[in-house]
Design a protein around this nucleic acid. Sequence first.
DNA 1: GGGTAACCGAGACGGTACGTCCAGTCTTCGC
DNA 2: GCGAAGACTGGACGTACCGTCTCGGTTACCC
Lengths: 195, 195, 195, 195
Amino acid sequence: MNGQRGPGRPRSEAARRAIIDAAIAELHERGYAALTMQGIAARAGVGKQTVYRWWPSKADVVLEAVAEWAEEQVAVPDEGSLEADLDAFLAATFRQRGQRPLLLGLMAEALLDPAFAVQLRDRFLLARRAAFRSIFERAAARGEVAPDADPELLMDLVYGTLWYRLMLDHAPVDDELGRRLSRLVAREAKATPSA
Amino acid sequence: MNGQRGPGRPRSEAARRAIIDAAIAELHERGYAALTMQGIAARAGVGKQTVYRWWPSKADVVLEAVAEWAEEQVAVPDEGSLEADLDAFLAATFRQRGQRPLLLGLMAEALLDPAFAVQLRDRFLLARRAAFRSIFERAAARGEVAPDADPELLMDLVYGTLWYRLMLDHAPVDDELGRRLSRLVAREAKATPSA
Amino acid sequence: MNGQRGPGRPRSEAARRAIIDAAIAELHERGYAALTMQGIAARAGVGKQTVYRWWPSKADVVLEAVAEWAEEQVAVPDEGSLEADLDAFLAATFRQRGQRPLLLGLMAEALLDPAFAVQLRDRFLLARRAAFRSIFERAAARGEVAPDADPELLMDLVYGTLWYRLMLDHAPVDDELGRRLSRLVAREAKATPSA
Amino acid sequence: MNGQRGPGRPRSEAARRAIIDAAIAELHERGYAALTMQGIAARAGVGKQTVYRWWPSKADVVLEAVAEWAEEQVAVPDEGSLEADLDAFLAATFRQRGQRPLLLGLMAEALLDPAFAVQLRDRFLLARRAAFRSIFERAAARGEVAPDADPELLMDLVYGTLWYRLMLDHAPVDDELGRRLSRLVAREAKATPSA
DNA sequence: GGGTAACCGAGACGGTACGTCCAGTCTTCGC
DNA sequence: GCGAAGACTGGACGTACCGTCTCGGTTACCC
């Protein structure tokens, strides 16, 4: 086992929480761009070293906060059809308000730092896709998915459109969008591409 | 017209070019994240003030460089069908190699700075959509687009998927993707959504 | 002669006055340390080049303003004795209020720039000593000055004390000081130093 | 006492010394007017912030250097009479060569910045006057000072003349000047001012 | 009266230093 | 050894002026 501790003072859970909370608070008050390790440490009442000891950058602190939420997984009850399942799933996803600035900040960091991009993809974005994929598997069992359909591309279509609108802010991300995407994806899943 | 000059020494075109070129060079050599106004000015052999006088941030310098290329517009010859047109257009778009880091850097900046996001959207991204839209109009004239189709959503699907893959780098952005998207969009444009 | 003009537009007296006046105004409003060539030109509504064409530095502009006042020479009426003459002269000198910051600024410049120190000494300070010296000559004619007295040293004593108190501001520069210095100098002028 | 340290890394004495030394070196090589915080930090191999953390301006750095020397107090042995004591003291004072540019630089700064003027006066100039004052007290004990003499004015005379000549550089500051001033001050200290 | 020359305003130019901020690291004390 | 504190080197930030330059335009003179 690995639970045994070595010598020395154990990591302070209080400090961990204070840091995460300080990061979230700063983020809501002043935005992601204004986040600094310095500011997080000061607000948490913690030495800078304590932050650096556990997270290499501000993005990693925020990612840990986000990952906490991501674990409270979106339930995907069976609605009877692929389109209905998707519609419910997307509606639940879009309902997460107030996270837009946070998500955009993380994505910005990922675009500037390839190492963090890997973190973000593996610890957050792919987790989301997993939920999506389970819906497809259920639909396949129901015979709603053509054998040569490509669920990966369909997921890219949905998440791509979602992120694109989040980023550009030229069109809404709302239930109407959810319904259209659901219908489109359901139709394409069944389509016989070449006939 | 507006070409007339006021009093005072006119702006130096040589300095403008040197700055743009220096920015591009730094970007290729050391990446977007390592770009600094200081570095651009030094490399261009120019005072920092001269950079700040005309561009408020490094992102705006890069955007001007990108905008130059964007003006060399992508020609969209008529290939006879919506699918063929789209395929040609996307192939041409994907062919622009080496610009990935640059585009991701600009997008990162836009995600962190809403004011710049507007710039990027209006001066670059919407210009790209215009080309796309003209293809749709041609297809509509050919009767390939159902009356209740939504070209805006279809464009979001394509560009969304493109950006999503560029950013996450979990799947390729290649001709194969172009063909699939072309076929999908052509099919959806014709689809009778609800019947 | 040298008064004849060559070809070309003659110097604008209006610009000259505007610059001097702007310098004085800035000086009174924001202090010598905050003076800048840029600020003077802007306030005078004049191009920077016009200032630089005629004065090499802000100190020279201010010096020209000061020299104007210095030419309105202190009259030294005959009061009947060396002590009385000195007392009247010093009282008149000390009366020039509001010029302390200006004088200190010029002196500061002189201390930092040897070339300007020469200007200040020759165009301003030595002019002041000339008035002082004429008082001594009058006293010598009256037999109030011992043959081996050194008027130069006595002038240094008076002006030195004056400047020292102006600079350090640890003791007042007032009529009381004037009277003490007058008495002391008159006594020393007569003294037989070594006997 | 106050020597106890709180938490945190203690101030680096090595950095302090390097900064002071760099300032002195720059001063000798390029003069006070060319001193910059930037240059001091670079030469000391130290971050600019470390300089700013402890001194608000270049003048304060130099003042600390000067204050070090000032603490190595001028001894004032008893020479038997006021005139002899003064002569010895002034000779010792004038002997401090090479400090003229430094002193003038500090004075210039004081003239431009009233806050620094207070620093310079209290931490340096008044310390010098203290030595002078002790000579007077010794003379008073010997009966060489008239009861109504004003030592403060006499000190102003001496230091005023000294600074005046240092600044204007129109006459030497040498032993001859020292002897004349000593004789004059000794005579004036005894003088019955009004009889 | 048509040059020619020196002035004028405006303002951009290459630079240098400013003083601040933050990144990461290091060094101390106390738990 | 962890944690708070805080000083350390390093470097970019955006600003302010410096002193120079390059414009279009304006007076003067002098042929």
